[in-house]
Design a protein around this nucleic acid. Structure first.
Lengths: 123, 123
DNA sequence: TGACAAGTACGACGCGCTTCGTATGTAGTG
DNA sequence: CACTACATACGAAGCGCGTCGTACTTGTCA
């Protein structure tokens, strides 16, 4: 129903996930002027149409809140990539991700803990 | 230099990675007629221009081979998503991927083995 | 040798996304 | 009350991608 966010929409959602509610101007500034103000505005209007955000119009400066959660959205983005490039195997994607060398020692330990939880659960 | 493959290009690359060299028709058939023949042809021509594949024109039916490898391409696709949606943390992406519930017991064990290797290496 | 089958080349269109210019409305202030 | 600052709304352009129709070339075989 609610579509997955596009790239530009995802940038905005990430800002909103950290600290909502926010006005368009606040989002615009958080984005570091990577796009024009009206570009951000328009995108957020479209997101409201799509149901990705809600907005409170009681003030002159409308306040925006995310209408989709981070975790499920991230999972769907991953599933998309998994289907597209990893033959449906999330584990294969995870392994590729870990072998990019971009993970620190601590992060690896975290992954290990998650893995233990999952393996337990599954039995 | 060589750009990342687009979605349609990735579908074709996956076929070529499995069994190259192949003609356009063979790729077309492997794709199960999800797109028209000339669509596949055109896309493969573009891929040749981009340097994603090479082609042997000595026969009337040109033979195509991948010019980029699967592993690095997959890693770049992941990095792209990591930067776009996971604040640069490949480990965070890996954890989300594992918690989609799409991984079997065996796959989890594989991930665990990889993890052990990585943790060793890093010390 | 002529006609058909099968290949390549190429141009063009439609769509979604991003971008921004411009029009319009409105709250505050001297 | 007029002026300025700042907000929203909206239309339209540019671009990449996927798609396919059509033209052209070439090999084959009756």
């Amino acid at each position: 129903m609610k579509p997955l966010p596009t790239d530009a929409e995802l940038q905005i959602l990430q800002v909103l996930w950290k600290r909502a509610p926010l006005t368009v101007r606040e989002v615009f500034e958080a984005l570091g002027n990577s796009a024009g103000y009206t570009t951000v505005l328009k995108t957020m209007q479209i997101m409201a149409e799509k149901g990705l955000v809600t907005r409170d119009e009681s003030n002159r400066s409308h306040l925006y809140r995310p209408a989709v959660q981070a975790a499920p959205t991230e999972r769907k983005l991953i599933s998309e990539l998994v289907d597209k490039a990893f033959e449906g195997s999330a584990a294969r994607l995870a392994m590729r991700a870990l072998s990019t060398g971009r993970a620190s020692r601590e992060e690896l330990a975290e992954v290990r803990r998650l893995l233990e939880t999952l393996e337990e659960q599954d039995s």
